[in-house]
Simulated scan of single mutants.
Amino acid sequence: MSASTLPLAADLMKAAGESCLEAGAIALDLFRPGAPTAARTWSKSGGSPVTEADIGVDTFLRVRLSALLPEAAWLSEETVDDAQRLSRRFVWVVDPIDGTRAYMSGSPDWAVCVALLDEGSPVLGIVHAPACGATYTAIAGSGAKRNGEAIRTSSVRTLAAARIAGPKPMLEALARVQPFEAVGKIPSLALRLTRIADGTIDAGLISPDARDWDLAAADLVLREAGGRLSGDDGASVAYNRPIPMHGMLVASAGALAAPLLEALAQLHTPAQPG
């Protein structure tokens, strides 16, 4: 997919980006740096947390984005799924606050995430992290930006030189195969990917059960910056499936993808006898 497949891509990005900035301001109003949020909080079925800020941002973005592209379906963490999305060309994919636990605790590592899928592939992506002062954007075929400036992944080619983020058990398992520099866990999956995109880190591991809304926007930013997101088998990530859930995923700067996947494959290869 390229920007040419997207109606009025630049205009749509401008309007969607402005909506994300306003959504971030809604969330910031109840965010307390270094302290518990002022928002009301509760647990969803399954135990994951949600706040009134999540719901407020979700409602705001659904109204704004649906007006920008009325033919697009909707998929969001905080909205009941509608199977009509499976038959639509365009689908908005939204995580109103990616990293809700971070938001609730006063950590700045959370983001408003918006992607537009065209036939299941992200063609527009915005990851807005207002508490970090960072907004990542990408249009398919047009590169990726951070606060309006072009970004690229690092040129690291070996795991020994790599800075890798992810859940501690996954990092410890990988370190048994090849030493590397482990960095602290980044609670927002989207920010884990965009920080690979801008070269802050070189790779990230993602445990199973991530959803489309955690990934789609940041996946496009990463891809347009020269990086790659895949399953641990190297397969590309597929979006807008009946169940928008994924297995273990691996993200990296482009030059690091092959050695990282090779190292992970060794974890699953039985030791040879004697």
Rank of each mutant, 00 (worst) to 15 (best):
S2R: 15
S2D: 14
P7V: 13
P7I: 11
D11P: 00
M13D: 02
K14H: 09
A25L: 14
F31K: 08
K44I: 03
G47K: 15
P49H: 09
A53E: 07
A53Q: 12
D58L: 04
F60L: 14
R62F: 10
V63F: 11
L69D: 01
P70M: 13
E71G: 02
S76T: 06
E77V: 03
E77L: 07
E78T: 02
D81C: 00
A83K: 15
L86G: 05
D95W: 09
D98S: 12
T100V: 12
S107Q: 14
G120W: 13
S121K: 12
V127I: 11
V127D: 00
C132P: 01
G143A: 05
N147I: 03
R152L: 04
T153K: 02
S155G: 12
V156N: 00
T158Y: 00
L159R: 06
I164L: 11
G166C: 08
G166Y: 00
G166P: 09
L171G: 05
L174Y: 05
L174Q: 06
P179M: 10
I186E: 07
P187E: 11
P187I: 08
R195P: 00
A197E: 09
G199Q: 03
I206Q: 08
A210L: 06
R211W: 11
A216V: 09
V221R: 06
N240T: 08
P242K: 15
M245H: 02
G247P: 04
V250Y: 04
L256A: 06
L256W: 10
A257C: 12
P259W: 12
P259Y: 13
L261T: 10
L261D: 04
L261G: 12
A265E: 14
P273M: 10
G274S: 14
